[in-house]
Write a protein that binds this DNA or RNA. Structure first.
Length: 696
RNA sequence: AGCGGGAUGGGAUAGCCAGGAGAUUCCGGCGGGCUCAUAACCCGCAGAUCGGUAGUUCAAAUCUACCUCCCGCUACCA
């Protein structure tokens, strides 16, 4: 079935998608990688001559949007639309040009989703089942997905209602999670019996195995799901008890909405449909692609492989639609070798990049050519500078400029001569390399083929030294420059998927009509116009002090997160023993800042001292029993000589509850009492904070 | 624990799926050239027995087994 003997370009229309951005936060370089990658791939397909649509849309539904909207006191639709509009404005700034960009809450998607679900139902793939659903009696509502937190039944880690995000990463079905707590009120959730709809994913095991065998794209998108299938697929609960979402279309689902992951991928189809309706089915027929014989390519993040290689193709099969030809799952982005973290502000934000004034094509080039699609890619301003200066400025830009400038000065354009056979062949090789790279889903290869062609150009011009020939051997000089002009044009055509704007500028400098985006590979071999104007420089170097400045900015933001490890370990026991240090001198303030996240790791609670007694053999140490609400902790503190132990019981105190356990004089200490200075002045509260309250 | 990715000259990467000339490209180092070009470009040199061990094979960076070490499991949140 889905084996593809035909290389790109095929006679069928293609559709390229990228993972839908979830409408609840700013875009950063990690998101951008996917959108740029998919954009470049769709451009590359078009350059190959394949009819291609690039579509996407915002993912509006789901509990996170509902939760955040609620927190901000706005309507979920309003909340999500705001983000949606921001995304829509941002993409073109990175030359990410969708043929259609919709959102999952629009009419097209809503109708199509309901139609597809109805069909699945009619085909007998949907059944009802009573399940236990978490319910918050205080808030009087059900708790789907992220409205509930608890313990993963598989690995025992803390997990969200819909996935074990910190542990084994499994997708969790409603009702699976243990010890559920409401994220609305923090109360333990009750379970109530509810009837929900299930999609029989388990019926599709054989189909999916076969599907994966024929699937193109990155290897992780094929390998990971194989394991899941072997372990046995579970049916998939496709409804939720909430208001925000697409209403379940069939009987018995009146109070239910569809799970966000049902309508999200359908947006790929809906968005294609919108495109089709806008341009007319003569130009692009969405039904041909999705129901007949199109080439569907999904570019996704590797965190959503399961949804795209299991649930999604099963749905498509269930309704008799066409299945994806390729799924490319991209790796993550790291910053200076460390994980990107939005909470630590260790990120390069889309907005920030643009505000720094860098051309989008530079980032496009960096993100697509630094590593393979599947590989994790590290971003640093140093590496960015190196790539831009070395490859784009030094190799490509320089070759373009020197060639065209020479041509302009001596010939006022393209010299009248034929392209040499050597150059013609070399360009044809490069074209073949690009074609092969596209078929390998290898964006890096596209860039490499183009840059190496420019490199060849530099070598070629150097080898022939036309500047020496203009007087002695004008004929050869003209021929060499003719070759260089052709090479320049070829580089522009081949690099267009990655640097569309810069390629277009060169295209115009050559005096070409139309757009380089519309040009196909063969255009690389066609002669440019006879005359053109004086060229300009296309890429500017990034200076060292600029990089230093950028690094500083980044470091300032994340300094705390990176290098506080070595300072904290040694002096932890200073409070336990209040022995001699100079009383007068205040300890200097710590220079190292810690992040809020680090602070949050400290679980500090209000406690009440139940009992206090000295520890035999120790000068200062006392054994305390401290009530911290949930439980009573035994802690050892160095306050024996400084306080009248008999007065302590009943006193409130402040206790670091997640201090690592220690044993002092054979007594286990499970927590740490906070006290000030040499006198071990006991910290307490001044209001009526309850025992067990967290200090924050 | 599980899953995915990785370990290749000083740094960063390619090749591995479809085993076959002591291995790609970029940066850096050293030496040279050129001057049309954004101190750019071109040429040459030094530098890796491809994480370890054991296998399969006429042949392994590439296949198999075991092991070691790294990275990620996050794009969400104050």
């Amino acid at each position: 079935m889905s084996t593809h003997d035909d290389d790109f370009p095929t006679d069928d229309p293609a559709v390229v998608t990228c993972g839908l951005p979830y409408a609840n936060g700013d875009l950063h370089i990690g998101h951008l990688r996917g959108y740029i990658g998919a954009d470049a791939f769709s451009r590359a397909l078009e350059t190959l001559g394949q009819q291609t649509a690039y579509v996407c849309g915002s993912d509006m539904h789901g509990t996170p949007v509902a939760v955040y909207a609620e927190q901000e006191g706005v309507d979920p639709e309003e909340f999500a639309l705001e983000w949606h509009e921001q995304y829509e404005e941002t993409f073109p700034k990175f030359n990410v040009e969708f043929d259609n960009y919709g959102h999952t809450h629009d009419e097209t998607n809503t109708e199509l989703t309901q139609e597809i679900v109805r069909t699945l139902d009619e085909e007998g793939y949907v059944y009802e089942k009573e399940i236990q659903v978490a319910y918050d009696p205080q808030a009087d509502q059900y708790l789907p997905d992220r409205y509930v937190e608890g313990t993963c039944p598989y690995c025992g880690e803390k997990a969200r209602g819909d996935e074990c995000d910190e542990g084994c990463q499994r997708h969790l079905e409603p009702g699976e999670i243990e010890d559920p707590k409401s994220t609305i009120t923090g109360n333990p959730a009750e379970y109530r019996e509810r009837t929900h709809k299930f999609f029989e994913v388990s019926e599709f095991s054989d189909f999916l195995t076969e599907f994966l065998d024929g699937l193109e794209g990155t290897s992780n998108a094929r390998n990971q799901p194989r394991q899941w299938i072997e372990d046995g697929l579970q049916d998939w609960c496709i409804t939720r008890d909430m208001d925000w979402g697409i209403d379940y279309p069939g009987e018995g689902g009146e109070d239910l909405v569809l799970y966000v992951w049902v309508d999200a991928p359908i947006e790929y189809v809906a968005s294609t449909k919108q495109y089709s309706e806008r341009v007319g089915t003569d130009e692009y027929d969405w039904e041909e692609v999705w129901k007949d014989s199109g080439d569907i390519v999904h570019v996704i993040g590797r965190d959503i492989i399961q949804h795209h290689t299991i649930f999604w193709p099963a749905m498509l099969e269930g309704v008799g639609y066409n299945k994806p030809r390729g799924i490319a799952a991209t790796g993550f982005i790291t910053i200076n070798g460390k994980g990107l973290s939005t909470s630590r502000n260790r990120a390069i934000w889309a907005k920030e990049y643009l505000e720094e004034g860098f051309h989008p094509d530079l980032l496009r080039y960096y993100l697509t050519t630094t590593g393979g699609l599947q590989q994790d890619v590290d971003f640093s301003w140093d590496a960015f500078q190196e790539k831009v200066n070395g490859e784009l400025v030094g190799t490509v830009g320089n070759f373009w400029y020197r060639s065209l400038l020479f041509a302009y000065r001596n010939y006022e354009g393209t010299p009248e001569a034929d392209v040499s056979e050597e150059v013609y062949e070399r360009i044809r090789d490069a074209i073949a390399e690009v074609r092969a790279a596209v078929n390998d889903y290898d964006l890096r290869g596209i860039g490499q083929a183009a840059v190496q062609l420019a490199q060849f150009g530099n070598e070629y011009i150097q080898r022939h030294e036309p500047w020496k020939l203009t007087d002695d051997d004008p004929e050869t000089a003209a021929q060499v420059i003719r070759d260089c002009v052709q090479l320049s044009k070829a580089v522009a055509v081949l690099l267009e998927p990655i640097t569309p704007d810069k390629s277009q500028t060169l295209w115009e400098q050559l005096g070409e009509d139309g757009t380089v985006a519309e040009a196909e590979l063969e255009a690389a071999l066609e002669a440019p116009p006879r005359n053109f104007d004086e060229p300009g420089e296309l890429f500017a170097k990034i200076e060292d002090d600029r990089v230093a400045e950028l690094n500083e900015k980044l470091e300032e933001r994340v300094a705390a997160a990176s290098d506080d490890e070595e300072t904290e370990s040694d002096d932890t026991d200073a409070d336990e023993s209040s022995d001699m240090t100079d009383v007068d001198d205040l300890e200097p303030l710590a220079e190292e800042r810690i992040s809020f996240e680090d602070f949050q790791e400290l679980d500090i609670r209000v406690g009440r001292i139940e009992s206090a007694e000295g520890i035999e053999g120790a000068d200062d140490l006392a054994r305390l029993e401290v009530d911290i609400g949930f439980e009573t902790r035994q802690v050892v503190a160095g306050i024996k000589q400084l306080h009248d132990l008999e007065e302590l019981p009943g006193e409130k105190c402040v206790l670091l509850a997640n201090m690592e356990k220690a044993e002092l004089f054979g007594v286990e200490s499970n927590g740490m009492i906070l006290a000030a200075g040499e006198e071990a002045d006991l910290l307490t509260t001044h209001g009526d904070a309850e025992v067990g309250e967290k200090i924050r």
